[in-house]
Amino acid sequence: MPEHYSQNENPLPIEEWVAKMDQAIEQICSLGRKLLETHSISAEAKKVAQEWSLADRLDQEESALRELFRRARAILESIESARAAMVDPSAEADQRHRAMHVAVDVIHENLPEIEKAFLVSRHSALDLLRWADRSGFVEGSSLPATYRASYSELVSCTPVFKPRLEAMQHELLRQKDRGHVHEDVRHLLSALTRYNALADSARAFVRSIVQPPFELVFHDAETFQDDWEGIDVDRHGDLATEINDCCQLLLYDLDQFHRKVERVEPELNAGLDASLYLLPNEEWRVIFTVDEDPVFHEMRISLLRIVHESKYENALSDVIRELYAGWNES
Rank of each mutant, 00 (worst) to 15 (best):
residue 203 R to I: 10
residue 207 R to K: 13
residue 175 Q to L: 12
residue 180 H to N: 14
residue 122 R to V: 00
residue 125 A to N: 00
residue 135 S to W: 10
residue 173 L to W: 09
residue 152 S to F: 04
residue 209 I to H: 07
residue 154 L to T: 03
residue 156 S to N: 05
residue 176 K to A: 06
residue 194 R to E: 13
residue 160 V to M: 05
residue 175 Q to C: 12
residue 198 L to V: 03
residue 151 Y to Q: 05
residue 139 E to A: 04
residue 143 L to H: 01
residue 125 A to D: 02
residue 169 Q to T: 11
residue 138 V to K: 13
residue 167 A to E: 04
residue 172 L to Y: 01
residue 134 R to S: 10
residue 201 S to R: 08
residue 181 V to M: 05
residue 129 L to R: 07
residue 165 L to G: 05
residue 154 L to S: 07
residue 212 P to W: 03
residue 184 D to L: 10
residue 188 L to T: 01
residue 197 A to P: 11
residue 200 D to N: 11
residue 176 K to P: 00
residue 185 V to P: 04
residue 142 S to K: 11
residue 208 S to C: 10
residue 197 A to N: 15
residue 138 V to Q: 09
residue 156 S to Q: 08
residue 119 L to F: 10
residue 190 S to D: 10
residue 192 L to Q: 00
residue 208 S to E: 06
residue 161 F to R: 05
residue 128 L to H: 03
residue 170 H to P: 00
residue 162 K to A: 02
residue 117 A to L: 00
residue 130 R to S: 11
residue 134 R to T: 13
residue 141 S to Y: 04
residue 124 S to D: 12
residue 113 E to V: 10
residue 129 L to P: 09
residue 118 F to K: 14
residue 173 L to P: 00
residue 203 R to F: 13
residue 141 S to W: 07
residue 124 S to E: 13
residue 166 E to A: 03
residue 210 V to P: 03
residue 168 M to K: 04
residue 197 A to E: 14
residue 213 P to Y: 14
residue 164 R to K: 14
residue 180 H to F: 12
residue 113 E to G: 08
residue 212 P to D: 12
residue 137 F to L: 12
residue 130 R to E: 14
residue 148 R to T: 13
residue 193 T to W: 02
residue 210 V to F: 02
residue 122 R to H: 15
residue 174 R to C: 00
residue 134 R to N: 12
residue 186 R to C: 05
residue 206 V to L: 00
residue 184 D to H: 09
residue 171 E to H: 15
residue 196 N to E: 08
residue 214 F to S: 11
residue 175 Q to Y: 08
residue 198 L to F: 00
residue 183 E to W: 03
residue 115 E to F: 05
residue 176 K to N: 02
residue 169 Q to A: 07
residue 152 S to Q: 12
residue 159 P to N: 03
residue 124 S to K: 05
residue 113 E to W: 06
residue 150 S to H: 04
residue 188 L to A: 01
residue 196 N to L: 15
residue 213 P to M: 11
residue 189 L to V: 02
